[in-house]
Amino acid sequence: MVKCYRKTISLSEAWVSSSERLSDFYASSWQRGDSPVPLLVVRLALVTAAIAVLCWSLVEGWNVRWLLFLTNWGLLLVTMMLLSGVLVSFVAVCKTSSVSETSEVPWYVSMYWLLFNIAVSVSLLITALYWILLYDPDMADIEPRMFWLDVATHGINSCLAIAEVVASRTPVRILHFYQPLGVGIWYAVFTAIYYAAGGTDGAGSPFIYAVLDWRYGWRTTALVASSLAGLIVVYAVLWLLALCRDKISLDLIRTVSHDLPIVPDSLSRIV
């Protein structure tokens, strides 16, 4: 569920350690009740597709610099998020007794929630940056196999992340924007250190991405600042998406019964 904040915010609310309902992490928005089975089936399908894309990327593009690229960080993050989501659902299915509702969430739920906040936002930003800054229309004719791999890693990957958002009830707290932002800052600092240490890309150029060339300090700094601002915008969009998801599913699917008298007042007076 999307959280609206009071004036005072506890440390647990700023982190991923507490939530009103544990069932929000293993039940789907599009079901009645809290059975973990429907979302488990969805997550198994999503994680299978994510692993397939990751394996395709490793087979087609593996080299010693594979982990340098933000795209591949996104692949790993989305795959780990979906794997941890499967773990959360599987544990809920395997529990013989009903899952107790508590404000404190188990470690594996915290891990999933953290990965969810980071992976969805970062993967969407990666997709936007690729199609705006890096996409080459001629690649489809020159290297069709690599073109379709790029479509998978910069398109399908984000679709899988969005599907997890829409299918689940995972809470989105606006205060958690610092989590994907921290990863973005970490990658920017990493590229600067890599450049300062004399690192190169596969062609020997002193950068990982041509648009992220630290020889042009002000231009690259402006790009990094714009990207980090874009990451905050993406997280805000994620929050709005979850808000709409919860509103629609609560109104149409997860209807809440109202407290009504067992018999009308007039009849009760007669009795």
Rank of each mutant, 00 (worst) to 15 (best):
L70T: 00
I132K: 14
A128N: 05
R173L: 00
A167G: 01
I174T: 06
C55L: 15
L124D: 14
D150N: 14
L83P: 03
L133V: 15
F116P: 01
T71M: 13
S103C: 05
Y130S: 11
A140C: 03
L58V: 12
N63L: 01
E164P: 00
G85W: 03
W66M: 02
V165H: 09
L114H: 01
L149H: 14
S97L: 08
V151L: 13
A50Y: 05
S84D: 07
E101N: 02
Y135T: 10
V59S: 09
S103L: 13
S158G: 02
G85F: 03
D138S: 14
I118N: 07
D136T: 10
L77V: 12
M80E: 08
M146V: 12
Y112F: 12
Y108T: 11
V78P: 01
L124A: 15
V47T: 10
W73A: 06
V166A: 10
F147A: 12
G61N: 09
V122R: 04
T153R: 12
L68M: 03
V122T: 04
S98I: 11
I51T: 13
I118D: 04
I126N: 06
K95E: 15
L175S: 04
G74D: 05
W73M: 03
V64H: 10
G61P: 09
V93P: 04
V78E: 11
F90P: 09
F90G: 13
C159Q: 08
S158A: 14
D150T: 14
A49E: 07
M146A: 15
N157K: 14
T102W: 02
H154G: 07
R65C: 02
V91P: 04
I118S: 03
M111E: 14
I174H: 00
V120L: 13
L76N: 13
L76I: 05
N63M: 00
L149M: 04
M80Q: 10
A140M: 14
L58P: 08
T102C: 14
A167Q: 07
I174G: 02
I118P: 00
S123H: 05
S98N: 01
D138A: 12
V47Q: 03
M81V: 10
G85T: 05
S121P: 02
D136Q: 13
E101D: 12
A50P: 01
F90R: 13
V47W: 03
P106L: 07
A167P: 02
A50H: 00
S158N: 02
F116T: 06
R169Q: 15
D150E: 09
L115C: 12
I132M: 08
A92E: 07
W73I: 13
L160P: 00
S89T: 04
S103G: 13
I126Q: 06
M139F: 05
P137A: 11
C159M: 15
E101T: 07
I156A: 11
H176S: 02
F116D: 05
K95F: 01
V109I: 11
C55T: 11
